[in-house]
C-alpha cells in the first residue's frame, strides 16, 4: 500500500469528524482565547482592541468571580453522593431478580424528562410553607420533640451547610443552615443517581467475572468483603471515568437551574461560573471578560483533571 493511498484512507475516515471538530470546537476555543485578551464589548464606543491580560487581572479582583467560583465548587459536594447512589442502585439491579428491566427504565426516567418541568416541580416541592419536603421535615421535628425548630426556607434562603458568607469569601455564623444552594444539591443528587452513571455501573458490574466473587465467597469472605476486595477494584476504571466526567460536568454546570429556578439568587448565592459567563456575555455584552472567565474555568478543570489522572491512575494500578 503506497503512502499516498494510506494517507488518503486515513483522511477519508478522519476528516468528516475532524473538519467539523476544528470548525465548531477547536476553532472556537482558540477564538475565545483570543477574545479573552481583548476589550470586546458590544456596548462601548471605542473599537475592540488587544488589552493583554487586563481581563484576567480585573477578574482576580472581582469579588463576584470568586464567590461564584466558590458556589460552583460548593455545588459539587453532591457529586460523590450521586455517584455512590448510582453504584448502590446498580449493585441492587445487578442481582438476578425479576423486573430489573422495569426498574432500570423507571430509574432512568429523570434523564429524559424535560429539565424545565422538573425544575418547576422541585420549586414546588421546596416551598417552605406548603411544600411536601418541609411537611415531612416538620413532622419529623415534631416527633422527635424539636417542634420549635424552624424548617429550612430552601430556595429563598442564603444559608448553607458551611455557613459561607453571601457577599464575600468567608464563613459567618448566621449563614449556617439549609438554603438555596443545598436545595439545588439535593435536586442534583436525585437527578444524578438514576441517570447515565447508573447504567455505566450496571454495565461494568455485569462484566465482573463471577468466578472471582465466587472464589472469594468460598474463602469465607462476607458480601461486603467480596464487594470491597473483588468487585470495587474491577469497577475502578469505570469509577474513574464517571468521576472525571462528573466534575467536568459539575464545574461547567448550574446554568439551567439558575435560569429556571432561582435567576442565580437569592443575592447571587446560586450563581455558578457558567451562569456568570452567560450573564456577562449575553446580558451585559462584556464578551472579552466573559471569555476570560471561561478560560479560567477551563484552567481549573484542566488542573483538576491532570491531578486526578495521576492520582486516579495510580489508584487504578494499585487496586
Amino acid at each position: 500500500m503506497g503512502a499516498r493511498r494510506k494517507a488518503w484512507i486515513v483522511a477519508c475516515f478522519l476528516l468528516p469528524n475532524f473538519l467539523g471538530f476544528v470548525v465548531f470546537t477547536a476553532g472556537p476555543v482558540v477564538f475565545s482565547l483570543g477574545a479573552s485578551l481583548t476589550n470586546w464589548n458590544l456596548q462601548r464606543t471605542t473599537p475592540t482592541r488587544y488589552v493583554g491580560l487586563a481581563n484576567y487581572v480585573e477578574l482576580s479582583r472581582d469579588d463576584q468571580f470568586w464567590t461564584y467560583l466558590v458556589n460552583t465548587a460548593y455545588f459539587m459536594i453532591g457529586m460523590p453522593f450521586a455517584i455512590a447512589g448510582s453504584l448502590f442502585l446498580a449493585v441492587l439491579l445487578n442481582q438476578r431478580l425479576r423486573f430489573t428491566t422495569t426498574f432500570r427504565t423507571v430509574l432512568y426516567v429523570p434523564a429524559f424528562t424535560s429539565g424545565v418541568a422538573l425544575m418547576i416541580l422541585w420549586k414546588a416541592l421546596y416551598n417552605p410553607d406548603f411544600g411536601p419536603i418541609n411537611a415531612v421535615i416538620e413532622a419529623v421535628l415534631r416527633t422527635i420533640g424539636l417542634g420549635g425548630l424552624e424548617a429550612p426556607q430552601w430556595l429563598l434562603s442564603t444559608r448553607n451547610l458551611f455557613g459561607l458568607d453571601v457577599e464575600r469569601l468567608g464563613v459567618v455564623r448566621e449563614q449556617f443552615g439549609l438554603g438555596a444552594r443545598d436545595a439545588l444539591i439535593f435536586m442534583g443528587i436525585w437527578t444524578g443517581v438514576g441517570g447515565g452513571n447508573m447504567l455505566l455501573y450496571l454495565a461494568a458490574l455485569s462484566n465482573v467475572p463471577s468466578e472471582l466473587t465466587e472464589a472469594a465467597a468460598l474463602d469465607g469472605a462476607s458480601r461486603w468483603e467480596c464487594f470491597r476486595n473483588v468487585t470495587w477494584p474491577q469497577l475502578s476504571p469505570t469509577t474513574f471515568f464517571i468521576v472525571v466526567m462528573s466534575y467536568i460536568g459539575g464545574l461547567q454546570g448550574g446554568f439551567e437551574q439558575a435560569r429556571v429556578m432561582t435567576a442565580g439568587g437569592p443575592a447571587g448565592t446560586t450563581t455558578t461560573l457558567a451562569y456568570y459567563i452567560y450573564t456577562k456575555a449575553f446580558e451585559e455584552f462584556q464578551i472579552g471578560y466573559a471569555s476570560a472567565v471561561a478560560w479560567v474555568l477551563f484552567g481549573v478543570i484542566f488542573v483538576v483533571t491532570v491531578l486526578n489522572w495521576r492520582f486516579g491512575n495510580r489508584e487504578t494500578n494499585l487496586l
Binding site: T25, G27, V29, A35, L297
Partner: peptide, 30 residues
C-alpha cells in the same frame, strides 16, 4: 496507524474539558 494520531486524540480529549459556553459565542459568529 498514522503520524500524529495520539496527539490528535489528546486534543479531542482536552476539548471535552472546555465549558460549552466558551464555544457558544465563536460558534455563533461562525
Amino acid at each position: 496507524t498514522w503520524r500524529g494520531r495520539d496527539a490528535t486524540f489528546q486534543l479531542y480529549l482536552a476539548t471535552l474539558m472546555i465549558p460549552g459556553v466558551v464555544t457558544m459565542i465563536p460558534n455563533y459568529t461562525v
